[in-house]
Design a protein around this nucleic acid. Structure first.
Lengths: 94, 94, 94, 94
DNA sequence: ACTGAAGGCTGCCCGC
DNA sequence: GCGGGCAGCCTTCAGT
């Protein structure tokens, strides 16, 4: 008869297969970093750079815009001169 | 002229390529879990199971033994009769 | 005039005050673990132990039972003889 | 006699005590958010704001400065007009 | 009630 | 070998 627990086994197998491939990729990445380091680059900084690029720039700016309002209400000095101007304009409008 | 920073770009590209593939695999894994859940399995338990399988059997038992020992020292009831016996033996040996 | 944004500031202040205290406690906890480590205890095991104690006893057994069941379905050797017996009983009941 | 396992118990007690206090604070924080929401504020945004304030502004800028260099090498358009100018200057200097 | 997201926590890798 | 920094996982929270 068809065993019902075969389904569980199938799921586990698929997951482990995929995780194995993931591990292989991690190893590859590590190797690239190692190679970069050998060429004189600072791996830590490269990691940071990759992280930044990964972050969708658009969404980041959107969030900042949304927050400036609240910052202004708290009397915080916005990060940029531009931001300060915007804050000022908003206060005058209020 | 040959630009030296092309090397950096090449490294970054390679890494990002690999990370992209990794992300794809993560998505696949997530999907399998979702499918398993739809079939009635408890994903949390499956995750635990996968983790256990990944861990070397010897180390696993070693960890559990230590946990049982600590529980015994606190007067907690150990998980298993076997564990309790082991703990008792250890205490007498001490 | 009474500024409406003062209310926001008050909320933020209260939250940040509380979070500060929380951070202090986290630091204290970390310190205790560190001290325990210095006395020869295995911090990882202690963490596990604390987690178990935190969890309701009933739920804990329920989770372990499910894990054992899944392991049995995969043909893995269950952690404990007791667990194996329980699994067997469950399978026959099904 | 003094039991050696009393030490373990003492550590566990201290940790659990501290965690209890931490949980109480978390509950307090949650309550403040709830109150703020009742006053018409958007809790999600407040959370973001708190997170931003938490981040040490100085360190953040320091990191960004350190990274602009690498960004420039990749030909990425820096976030700000100021950044672009800086990049341009650097390229001309090269 | 489930899904997606955010923050906190754990394990891993690197440098000291 | 240890401690710090970073990525991944898990849990909790808002939204649907």
């Amino acid at each position: 008869m068809g065993k019902p627990n075969d389904k569980l086994k199938a799921f586990v197998d698929r997951i482990e297969r995929l995780e194995g491939e993931k591990d292989a990729l991690s190893a590859d990445i590590k190797e690239v970093y190692s190679e970069a380091k050998g060429t004189g680059f600072d791996t830590k900084t490269i990691r940071k750079l990759i992280g930044l690029r990964r972050m969708d720039a658009g969404k980041r700016q959107e969030q900042e815009a949304m927050l400036d309002l609240y910052m202004a209400e708290l009397g915080m000095i916005a990060d940029t001169p531009l931001g300060q101007a915007a804050v000022k304009a908003k206060q005058e409008a209020a």
